[in-house]
Write a protein that binds this DNA or RNA. Sequence first.
DNA 1: GTGGGTTTGTGGCACC
DNA 2: GGTGCCACAAACCCAC
Lengths: 82, 82, 82, 82
Amino acid sequence: MSEVMTQVIAKDHLTQIVSRIERLEEDKAAVAEDIKEVYGEAKSHGFDVKILKQVIKLRKMDQDKLAEQEEILGLYRSALDV
Amino acid sequence: MSEVMTQVIAKDHLTQIVSRIERLEEDKAAVAEDIKEVYGEAKSHGFDVKILKQVIKLRKMDQDKLAEQEEILGLYRSALDV
Amino acid sequence: MSEVMTQVIAKDHLTQIVSRIERLEEDKAAVAEDIKEVYGEAKSHGFDVKILKQVIKLRKMDQDKLAEQEEILGLYRSALDV
Amino acid sequence: MSEVMTQVIAKDHLTQIVSRIERLEEDKAAVAEDIKEVYGEAKSHGFDVKILKQVIKLRKMDQDKLAEQEEILGLYRSALDV
DNA sequence: GTGGGTTTGTGGCACC
DNA sequence: GGTGCCACAAACCCAC
């Protein structure tokens, strides 16, 4: 395949990759927006947003600890071929 | 409505809010994961991830700058009552 | 060197570090104050602070973008071993 | 004074203001850089940067409480003409 | 384990 | 006063 041909393909591929990522980042931004809205709604119902965030962070941390335990278990299991 | 009733509703409401947010954060994490995968795929096709990220960042800066300019134009307009 | 001696030195060192940082943060706050004053002065001369800030932001974005482009150019160069 | 003349003066003034602010922001960035360096140095001497930051934040908070007290005192004094 | 980049959280500020 | 916004600071995560 010619050098030029390869470059064209690479360019198309690059364009495709960039588009996909940008599309996904839009999605991410949209979700972030949704989250903000929920917080706003909560605030309007008298909840303290800062506290809310802390609570959610704690809940997440606990889950992470759990995930960590499971990961360690997974390591043991794979090491022991169980 | 009784104090207890109010508390129950608040508790339900709080639970609901937290659930909604956690659900949305899962979505966000999933999208972030997708993005990472696209980068990984690109890397496996020989693209330089760091450069890719820079390119996407530059494109985003362009968009942001455009938005800023529109914003500033709007400000001038309102300042001049046009 | 004794444990106590080490602790004393560490304490002195820590004190010194904290002092240096706090001094620098004062400097930073002072500069921030100066900036605020300049905006205030500008406002009193009839300039629209919000627009001013937008302008300065745009100029900074230009600079940042330039820096990004140089960065990306450098990345390409190193990628191509030029 | 002619309209054009006024505009020229305003333009000069604007340029001056923008320059002053940009200069000050550079100063601020430089100080921020210094702070970062001190943290880096501290880290290389075995100090925990995260803890350091917390300590400094606490010390700052206390000073703010103090400042608040003094401010209230100032309000009383001015109210009482002392 | 160190640095860089990204993302999140927090405080300040201006406007309503 | 309270609300949304913006900028700074901190935490996190990955890659080297």
